[in-house]
């Protein structure tokens, strides 16, 4: 996994950067595992501390699985690989996930940090 195609600002360099989409793409794969929609949650990057909706991460999907990276520092936040009879899920890069829950009070409708 090379970082060299990302500039300091995280913008893709000219040349042939890998294509990326965003964390919305993770919804189907994660729905197989979690009872809530994790793409609406706020994730905290273990590398730089940036908090952002999981749906707004950068997702690279031209691999055997899906790799989500932090928009701020490009560190890997999450990897998910679906095999025929199992799923590998690597969440090391995510220090914390905040999930808005209905009816628990306190949280704004837009979720923590809004």
């Amino acid at each position: 996994m090379t970082e060299s195609w990302l500039t300091q600002s995280g913008a893709p360099q000219s040349g042939a950067p890998p294509s990326w989409v965003d964390g919305n793409e993770l919804a189907g794969a994660l729905a197989e595992v979690f009872a809530v929609d994790v793409t609406t949650a706020q994730g905290v990057c273990a590398g730089c501390g940036r908090m952002a909706p999981v749906a707004e991460t950068r997702v690279f999907d031209r691999a055997p699985g899906l790799v989500a990276r932090c928009v701020g520092c490009s560190a890997v936040l999450l990897r998910v690989v679906r095999g025929p009879d199992r799923i590998w899920l690597d969440l090391r890069g995510m220090a914390c996930v905040q999930i808005a829950m209905p009816g628990t009070g306190g949280a704004s409708p837009d979720g923590p940090g809004a």
């Binding site: 964390g23 919305n24 919804a27 189907g28 729905a31 929609d37 793409t39 609406t40 909706p53 999981v54 749906a55």
Partner: peptide
Amino acid sequence: VRGPVGGYF
């Protein structure tokens, strides 16, 4: 088809 999925957008 799997879905509908995605609660953010």
